[in-house]
Nucleic acid binder design. Structure first.
Length: 792
DNA sequence: AGCACGCCGACT
DNA sequence: GTCGGCGTGCTC
């Protein structure tokens, strides 16, 4: 017998399957999903590996080594999730290890320990009773108590003891490593040839303390030279912990009686739970109550539920409702939990201690054994497409798990994505509609032509109508939300004399002025610069900011409405969860009159007292050069508008635009989803974009532009060789990415358009091609994605 | 990533 | 010669 394993190693060169022989004595103990120790490399170093498959025979011609031993006595993950990992590997062309990692419990796989404890079957007179009275880790049992694995297995088989997984409570979280020189170091031992080591020392002399990765890249040196210096006792190393998070209790949330529409949707789902649904409901139509009742039914059947929300920012209020309703423990899964916390949530789910998980896209991997329901709320949201490896689409994984478990799958949105709507019209999902708001009123929408404002000499960001309306609402003590899709003070700084634009030194983008830190900031790499007073190119003093962001808007508003309490919510001000939560609470408690925000506030925030929403510039997202620009804009405008008038007060929306005739803006203002869909689907068809074709993007990144271009051309050459004659496959590029350089790495892309039945054929070829180039050129990154949310 | 191999310049 | 640095290639 042989098994296929993935090594626990970070190197991308080892990101592939290895085959080991299973010695007879562990043959009947080893299972898929367990960790094992294997001899690896020339020194046969003992390495942790994950078994993803077991086979009787292999026909490969390489020699196989024997597995040393099994680490776990039961599988960390079951077949469903292992299969899901391979599904991702194949479909999204993502590195195999990243796919396996995704379905494994979070955190360092080495830190996961198996703990043994007694069951009620263990007799008090058993001579091992005292040992298992309290839980013991496998390590301790083997080393301190001198109990061998055979005894453990025997006891376990008889049901006298059981085990579970945990990680060390003193487990270390993420570290950033800072390096400096020791005070009285002795550099006499450094040979004259060690140029790199001297570079490092000199760099540290100038910069005192430097972050490890930065140090290596700045001095262009390798880990080799660094390690040599550590050995010679020259460097000080300081580690700093990053990130933290928490979970809390919530108030009772009582059950509502469903209205007719809600009830119809609910009944249809319950009639046929083994299928998929699209619940299309206008904002404020009470989708959440339908979810809650479906989950309740699912709980009655003893089944588990996964509820997905687009952003971490939405989890607190969703959790509040589910916890408030069901009065039971609910697991949370999202990216801002620490490794330890994530592991604890994973363990609760795995051990069956919870039946409900609420979370962002990664919660789709919740290791439930009896999954009965998956809900994807705000289904259209881009965050359901992962932009890191594995670059999965949550809807596709949900379909996979739904089919495997014969579960119910519900997509929900006021503005379904083109993809989901098309599948619904094709009959793949059943359509359920909630056409009316619970309180019966949709907001009234006004479109303001900003060109007219300019003609009337109003140069501010606020039109006269918006100004009037804000005043009116403030007088009535109602709340206002202003939406602007751009953070910072200004979009860029440029010279009125020569046209010079301040750009980031490491990226091909202009820098944004942030007044609170009075610096220019690059939103791609985080570098900052002082705002110059004279133009670095021509020396003119006419260098100034241009365009406006949320920070500038906040200033204008404070000037226009000095008495109003204003807060600004964007990725700069609401960086961590606690500030976000306090802003949310202040808004809810009516301590804020005007909320200014970006994308962040478009998603499902419900404030009963908000009666006016102002969209400062509806055009911004329309101009993005991406085939999804119209779809995203329509969603955004509709969602933001939906923030107005959620309770019994009537809401109003003001959309400011320079393009009042634009189709998307008009459709959004009339809440005309169908009109929008019909228009957009035609254009996707005409220009051959998803859902009519699949796009595979290949991004090539390298510090040298020449090398980047060279490798890109070679990849294109091989692709052409294979597919040039195939009329179902189009290969575009290589072209420089729209942002042609980020963090000093040049970026090229190749885009492949293909009919989806060709995907399988091309993906095998692409994986081989990618591996070939990765092994050939170590400093080049090659990133492949299927239908990414951002093709640039 | 970790390790061996082999090339190269600098020093005995 | 010979030693250490450093680039390259391989790992079931």
């Amino acid at each position: 017998m042989y098994c296929y394993v993935i090594l626990d190693s970070k190197s991308r060169f080892l990101d592939k399957s290895f085959t080991y022989h299973i010695p007879d004595k562990i043959k009947n103990k080893i299972k898929k999903g367990m960790r094992v120790i294997v001899p690896f490399g020339k020194g046969n170093k003992n390495t942790i590996a994950f078994v993803y498959d077991i086979v009787e025979n292999i026909d490969d011609d390489f020699e196989t080594k024997d597995i040393v031993e099994i680490i776990d006595s039961k599988a960390l993950v079951d077949d469903e999730l292992i299969n899901l990992a391979f599904f991702m590997n194949k479909r999204y062309l993502s590195p195999l290890r990243s796919c396996i990692r995704q379905v494994l419990p979070a955190g360092n796989i080495k830190e996961i320990k198996e703990y043994f404890y007694k069951t009620e079957n263990l007799d008090k007179n058993d001579n091992l009773y005292h040992i298992f009275e309290s839980k013991k880790s496998l390590d301790d049992l083997l080393n301190k108590y001198d109990i061998n694995k055979d005894i453990l297995d025997k006891y376990k088989d008889k049901g006298l003891i059981d085990s579970y997984f945990d990680i060390n409570s003193n487990q270390k979280i993420n570290y950033q490593i800072f390096v400096s020189l020791k005070e009285n170091f002795d550099d006499s031992k450094i040979s004259k040839n060690a140029k790199k080591q001297k570079d490092i020392i000199n760099y540290l002399r100038e910069n005192k303390e430097v972050e490890y990765k930065k140090l290596l890249s700045k001095t262009k040196s390798s880990k080799n030279s660094f390690d040599a210096l550590v050995k010679k006792n020259i460097l000080n190393i300081r580690k700093i912990e990053v990130n933290k998070a928490l979970v809390k209790d919530s108030e009772r949330y009582d059950k509502f009686i469903l209205n007719d529409e809600q009830n119809l949707a609910f009944r249809k789902i319950m009639e046929n739970p083994d299928s998929s649904y699209l619940l299309k409901g206008v904002t404020g139509s009470g989708k959440t109550e339908v979810f809650l009742q479906v989950v309740e039914e699912n709980l009655k059947k003893g089944k588990d539920s996964i509820i997905l929300v687009p952003e971490i920012s939405l989890t607190p209020q969703t959790i509040e409702r589910f916890q408030g309703r069901f009065k039971q423990k609910i697991a949370i899964m999202h990216s801002r939990l620490s490794q330890k916390e994530r592991f604890q949530q994973w363990r609760m789910i795995k051990n069956g201690e919870v039946k409900i998980v609420v979370g962002a896209r990664s919660a789709i991997f919740a290791p439930f054994k009896n999954l009965g329901l998956i809900i994807i709320d705000e289904e259209h949201d881009k965050s359901y497409i992962s932009s890191q490896d594995p670059k999965f689409h949550t809807d596709e994984l949900a379909l996979f798990r739904r089919a495997y478990n014969k579960a119910t799958l519900i997509f929900a949105s006021a503005t379904p994505s083109i993809k989901t709507m098309t599948k619904t019209l094709d009959g793949e999902y059943n359509l359920l509609e909630l056409k009316n708001r619970v309180n019966g009123k949709l907001p009234k929408v006004h479109i303001v032509d900003m060109r007219e404002e300019l003609k009337n000499s109003n140069y501010s960001m606020i039109s006269s109508l918006l100004y009037e309306k804000i005043n009116e609402k403030l007088k009535r003590d109602e709340q206002v939300i202003l939406f602007l899709n751009k953070i910072g003070h200004n979009s860029f700084t440029f010279c009125r004399h020569c046209g010079y634009v301040i750009k980031c030194e490491a990226c091909d983008v202009s820098m944004t002025y942030h007044k609170n830190v009075s610096k220019l900031v690059c939103h791609y790499c985080g570098r900052t610069k002082n705002q110059p007073t004279i133009c670095p190119s021509c020396g003119s003093k006419k260098i100034k900011e241009f365009g406006a962001g949320t920070e500038k808007l906040e200033e204008e508003i404070k000037e226009l409405f000095p008495k109003a309490k204003v807060i600004r919510m964007d990725s700069m001000t609401a960086k961590d969860k606690s500030t976000y939560n306090s802003m949310y609470k202040n808004m809810k408690d009516n301590k804020v009159d005007i909320l200014i925000g970006t994308q962040m506030i478009a998603k499902g925030l419900d404030f009963d007292n908000v009666t006016l929403v102002g969209i400062i510039s509806a055009d911004l997202s329309l101009n993005i050069d991406d085939y999804t620009a119209y779809e995203t804009s329509f969603e955004l405008l509709t969602q933001v508008s939906g923030r107005a008038g959620r309770a019994d007060k009537k809401g109003e929306v003001i959309i400011q635009t320079y393009r009042p005739d634009n189709f998307v803006i008009n459709a959004a203002s009339k809440n005309d989803y169908q009109g929008f869909y019909n228009y957009e689907i035609e254009s996707r068809k005409a220009f051959e974009y998803p859902p009519f074709v699949d796009l595979i993007t290949i991004k090539i990144l390298d510090k040298s532009r020449i090398k980047c271009m060279d490798i890109s051309k070679k990849i294109k050459y091989y692709l052409d060789l294979e597919y040039e004659k195939d009329r179902e496959i189009k290969i575009i590029g290589p072209n420089p990415c729209k942002i042609s350089r980020i963090n000093n790495k040049y970026r090229y892309n190749i885009i492949i358009k293909l009919k989806d039945e060709k995907l399988e054929e091309i993906s095998d070829f692409l994986i081989r091609l990618k591996n070939y180039f990765i092994n050939k050129s170590k400093d080049t990154s090659i990133l492949v994605a299927l239908n990414p949310s951002d093709i640039n």
